[in-house]
Design a protein around this nucleic acid. Structure first.
Lengths: 221, 221
DNA sequence: CCCGGGGTTACGGTTTCCCGTAAGAAAGGC
DNA sequence: GCCTTTCTTACGGGAAACCGTAACCCCGGG
């Protein structure tokens, strides 16, 4: 079993139960921190002392407070950790439930497990830890289905850029200009109209207001 | 100190740490359930046996699963409990952070304390329990400011109705009809236009898309 | 009774958005 | 090279939304 585990979790209550779970698994060395910066520091120090961690359990969203941080969230923390200790196994423990976000964690950051804070999370946490100790990857059962039943429409980069601009109050007729600024193509006004049209059609919407709330719900903007 | 406490919380991990917190406070009888329906049942039974609870700690959002429930969320649970045992003290422990929602809990449901799942939540939980045991009401410090610095604009019922309809894809020109159906006034098209206009102006928006995402963020729709 | 004011509704002109069509440009096949 | 095919862009008519103005209605004060 893992011998040296680090917990990065700002919510005191979650932090407590993760520690208790590790205790149940017989893991003796489980350090915990409430800030991302601390997490990185501890990992670096542990490596220097030739006692590197073999598992990091981290949340995604860390709340800002008076204690200003360089690293502000779990995603950034994981990126930074990968620079320092690429082989460190990483388990993300978060309430995030958007397929787009979780997919990106596995695909782009190569995390080993994602456990969602939900009904049986403590039990699932144990399961996930056991699994990634033996193999290398754990994908939650109730997640697998969710990821498959993803979006009815595959949003391209242009699409989310357009919707994002709309949600910021940019008039449609000015969008071509902003797209060019960002080097996104196509950028013609007609193309913008056409993409909006096909998005509305695919999702059976009639107004752009529906598009923005939809993308908001799925964490695309 | 409280003698008989019931915990309604679907997340296993949160449930664990709340129990541990109560343990730290020396509360001996702390039952816990994962479903709202169970919570109500236990409260009713305890009353019938002349051993009523004196504190309920509940979450707000309970996730649906195969186990279909009559009561689907914390708000509904509180309403039901108030029918059965009006004097029961209630502490809501949730991640909800929208002033509109939390205000309503205090004002309309008369809860005794709200503790937000956040950085020092376990510590604050103890504080809140101690406070409502002695006095009757606990309002978190970091909440007080939030509630004050509410919304820049006071949304009327008409306003949220209009924005809600917009977000459902109803064309603006048809909104008067839908408002009349719901018995909301004013319902004239000009009034709709005027209200939208003043909302945009107050919030310094230029497009309705901004309004819908704003209301989405604040949990108004 | 008349008058005035707040709130609601009705009516035009202007702008923006929507959508179909067609012209133009880039990529690939023969 | 030329010709499809596909993607992008340009144009124009029609609908919706925007905005200022004015008429209307309901109520309380004089």
């Amino acid at each position: 079993m893992f011998e040296r585990v680090l917990i990065a979790e700002d919510h005191e209550s979650s932090n407590i139960s993760v520690r208790k779970t590790l205790e149940d698994l017989g893991i003796e060395i489980a350090h915990y921190v409430f800030y991302c910066d601390d997490a990185l520091t501890w990992i670096q120090k542990a490596r220097q002392n030739d006692e590197p961690y073999d598992l990091l359990i981290t949340d995604l969203s860390f709340e800002e407070d008076h204690n200003k941080q360089r690293i502000t969230g779990g995603t950034e923390l994981i990126k930074a950790v990968r620079q320092v200790q690429p082989n460190l196994k990483i388990l993300v423990f978060s309430a995030e439930n958007k397929a787009a976000v979780i997919d990106a964690l596995y695909d782009e950051l190569g995390i080993n497990a994602y456990v969602r804070k939900a009904r049986n999370d403590a039990h699932e946490l144990k399961l996930a830890i056991n699994t990634i100790y033996k193999s290398n990857k754990y994908i939650s059962a109730n997640l697998r289905q969710g990821i498959k039943a993803k979006n009815a429409y595959e949003f391209a980069d242009v699409d989310i850029a357009i919707i994002s601009l709309l949600s910021q109050g940019i008039p449609q007729k000015n969008i071509p200009f902003h797209l060019q600024e960002k080097g996104i193509s196509p950028s013609g006004l007609s193309s913008v109209e056409k993409r909006l049209n096909s998005m509305r059609e695919a999702l059976e919407f009639s107004k752009n207001e529906q598009l923005v709330v939809y993308c908001k719900d799925f964490g695309l903007i």
